[in-house]
Amino acid sequence: MATTRQVARQRRHRRRLVLGAAAALTAAGVLAYLVMALLPGHKVDAGPAAASPLVTTQPKAAGTAGTASPSATPSPSSSPSASGSASPKTTATPKAAKSPSKGAQKSSRGSTTPPSAGRIRPHTLYQGVATAYQAGAGDGACLFGPSPDMMIAAMNTTDYETSRACGAYVLVRAANGKSVTVRITNECPLPCAPGQIDLSQQAFAELADLKVGRLPITWSLVSPSSLGTMSIRYKTGSSAYWCGIQVVGHRNPVVRLEVSTGNGWRQLPRTSFNYFISADGNGCGKAIRVTDIYGEQLTVSGLAVLPNVLQSTRVQFARH
């Protein structure tokens, strides 16, 4: 029989054999792992790691223009929706050469920005009815003052859109083939319906006899060719602490007016009487940037806060 010492020696020997075999298997596994890792195209799971968010960089969209529907014709009781029509055509305008200075005034033409959608859009035909009113000297809700000619009209309240239609030139056509181009200087309140235009009696007479009363028409926005530069007017009561700013004589409808501040450009809210208001005076007397319905921006600086004085500029929106 084996002694206790011999049994203990045999156990230690078996333990060494087991440990040696385990070490050999481990080494073989590691070697195989390394060989597999070195094989081309083979991915090795490195175990759990911190997740990283997926970041996708998209290039800036080029300033290309959309194409409007050639003949979107809403009914008199409806209006074009922001999603129902294609964007009107916008054309990038290069910066104009500087004109000789006139006092401290400076004017410049900037690049275009996407136009904001409104009820009256370029390249869109509208249906409605024409009526007539006594326009007097041609002044109206837009507060432009007396008109140099009487080819003017009042836009129905819906399409007037808080004075956004002010200054727009509209080509009005009657079923008899006659047409007239008018400038919107006034608002026609209810019961004037969407699509309706209240023409001055002089403008209505270009289409039909005044006795007709109501005349079915179609109309669309136009951009006249013979037009001088636009002007800026500060409202009566304006100062460095409060001011109202109005654009006069613009070729295309104005959709936005901004003033320069110490922190960049500030957009001013528009009133129904066609002035953009800075209630706290911030930006009054500073540079003014005006954007038309096509997205073109014109910047004018060096104008003093002169209440109720029409100050001319040297810029005008491009024709479309």
Results as ranks from 00 to 15, higher is better:
residue 16 R to Y: 12
residue 17 L to R: 04
residue 18 V to E: 07
residue 18 V to A: 13
residue 18 V to L: 15
residue 19 L to G: 11
residue 19 L to W: 12
residue 19 L to N: 14
residue 21 A to D: 14
residue 21 A to L: 13
residue 24 A to M: 11
residue 24 A to E: 06
residue 24 A to H: 07
residue 25 L to T: 07
residue 25 L to E: 09
residue 26 T to D: 12
residue 27 A to M: 15
residue 27 A to R: 06
residue 28 A to G: 14
residue 28 A to H: 12
residue 29 G to S: 14
residue 29 G to W: 10
residue 29 G to N: 14
residue 30 V to E: 06
residue 30 V to T: 08
residue 31 L to F: 14
residue 31 L to S: 11
residue 32 A to G: 11
residue 33 Y to W: 15
residue 33 Y to E: 09
residue 34 L to S: 14
residue 34 L to Q: 11
residue 34 L to V: 05
residue 35 V to H: 15
residue 36 M to Q: 13
residue 36 M to G: 12
residue 36 M to D: 06
residue 36 M to V: 09
residue 37 A to L: 15
residue 38 L to R: 14
residue 39 L to M: 12
residue 39 L to Q: 04
residue 40 P to Q: 02
residue 40 P to H: 07
residue 40 P to M: 00
residue 41 G to F: 10
residue 43 K to V: 11
residue 43 K to G: 05
residue 43 K to Q: 15
residue 44 V to I: 03
residue 45 D to N: 10
residue 46 A to M: 05
residue 46 A to S: 11
residue 47 G to M: 04
residue 47 G to K: 04
residue 48 P to V: 15
residue 49 A to K: 13
residue 49 A to H: 02
residue 50 A to T: 05
residue 51 A to Y: 10
residue 52 S to D: 07
residue 52 S to Q: 12
residue 53 P to W: 00
residue 53 P to E: 04
residue 53 P to D: 04
residue 53 P to V: 06
residue 53 P to G: 03
residue 54 L to I: 13
residue 55 V to S: 03
residue 55 V to L: 01
residue 55 V to W: 06
residue 56 T to V: 10
residue 56 T to Y: 11
residue 56 T to C: 04
residue 57 T to C: 00
residue 57 T to P: 00
residue 58 Q to C: 00
residue 58 Q to I: 00
residue 58 Q to E: 04
residue 59 P to H: 00
residue 59 P to A: 00
residue 60 K to W: 02
residue 60 K to V: 01
residue 60 K to L: 01
residue 60 K to Y: 04
residue 61 A to G: 13
residue 61 A to H: 11
residue 61 A to N: 08
residue 61 A to I: 08
residue 62 A to E: 03
residue 63 G to Q: 12
residue 63 G to W: 06
residue 63 G to S: 04
residue 64 T to C: 00
residue 64 T to Y: 10
residue 65 A to G: 09
residue 65 A to F: 05
residue 65 A to C: 07
residue 66 G to V: 01
residue 66 G to W: 01
residue 66 G to P: 00
residue 67 T to Q: 12
residue 67 T to N: 05
residue 67 T to L: 06
residue 67 T to R: 11
residue 68 A to H: 06
residue 70 P to L: 08
residue 70 P to D: 01
residue 70 P to E: 00
residue 72 A to D: 10
residue 73 T to M: 09
residue 73 T to L: 13
residue 74 P to W: 01
residue 74 P to Q: 02
residue 75 S to H: 01
residue 76 P to G: 03
